[in-house]
Design a protein around this nucleic acid. Sequence first.
DNA 1: CTCCGATGTTCACGGTGTCCACATCTGCTA
DNA 2: TAGCAGATGTGGACACCGTGAACATCGGAG
Lengths: 196, 196
Amino acid sequence: MAYHHGDLATALVDASLELSRDGGPAAVTIREATRRVGVSPNAAYRHFPNRAALLDATAAAIQQGLAAAMTEDPDPSPIARLHRIGAAYVAFALDEPGWFAVVFFGIRPPDPARVELAPAFLALSAALEDLVAAGALPADGRDDAAWACWATVHGFAELCLRGPLAGLDRAEQRRRGDAAIRAVIAGIARTGGSAA
Amino acid sequence: MAYHHGDLATALVDASLELSRDGGPAAVTIREATRRVGVSPNAAYRHFPNRAALLDATAAAIQQGLAAAMTEDPDPSPIARLHRIGAAYVAFALDEPGWFAVVFFGIRPPDPARVELAPAFLALSAALEDLVAAGALPADGRDDAAWACWATVHGFAELCLRGPLAGLDRAEQRRRGDAAIRAVIAGIARTGGSAA
DNA sequence: CTCCGATGTTCACGGTGTCCACATCTGCTA
DNA sequence: TAGCAGATGTGGACACCGTGAACATCGGAG
């Protein structure tokens, strides 16, 4: 127990979670993480090939946490569910800007296969599928609609975090976010068919 | 001319532009920028208090360049102009990812007053104003519409650069971007009034 | 009991931002 | 025209950072 830590990998991820919560990915440092765990810097290299890998593992841990908050939507109406999902995405970004930044700016090769499996994407897809079933969205416009929704909520979060909407208070940010979400949802139902 | 450079500040910004064009903000380094200009690292501190200030100046220079590309829109229809502006925004992000990252992720205090004057925002506002004049958008929904548009194009760019759409080829990215832009535009015209 | 692989340590290198004291040049003033 | 003051650039130093190589220690398999 003195020399061997037991589970250094997860301990380092935990430390990385603490560090990135305020400070974002830049605050995640091999040296600081190992320092917190009480271990020499190079010990990390037995479990992660480099700093980017530690950030990746941290991002994965964050996404799991996000999954739980995302799947709580017993709302029956597809439109309402869509809105809830989008609002939850924005809320997470504003509540945990550091973690949000880790998930989206941790240096990571874009692996489309894994992203498609992300819980947020699954929830979005399901809601859009219901919209198709309800006849409010053409089936062949579903994918485009998904990206449009994602783009809007993600971009809005970005505008609030690093962009021109950063100065606003949370209530106003929330109000404008709702308006933006309402806009896309209205737009995808109308324009889905004209995408070809 | 040997000892004094003449205009080190702009020379450093130029070097920073080169560096960030590929490599983004992370590639902008006091030491490398000064190295390229042929000057000692500390010379930079006579013109910029720190690295962040150099990045800020670089971001300002990039935005000026973006302004030119943005204001070329002799398109008469407000809807068409809106689409053009959004497409130009996304195109710039995809054509110059490094510079785009500098503008939006250079560590910078959010100064809302200056952002409102950004040329891209002005073009967007003008197009939306025309939409109001044409009766396609309630006047009190104009601001919300602006943020919704901006959020969508910005988020879409992000999805293409660092997100799940990164793997797609340019043509496909462009097609989906057009679909997303079409969606918001359709959405703002419909939902603008219900924002209150 | 012995040995081997997993894990952690130590030392070292090159890179970075930035502070401090010093050198040099330029322009204004007397 | 002489000289001084401020602007500008230099050199050295410090504290960080990521990371590679060699070494030490432990725990379990034979």
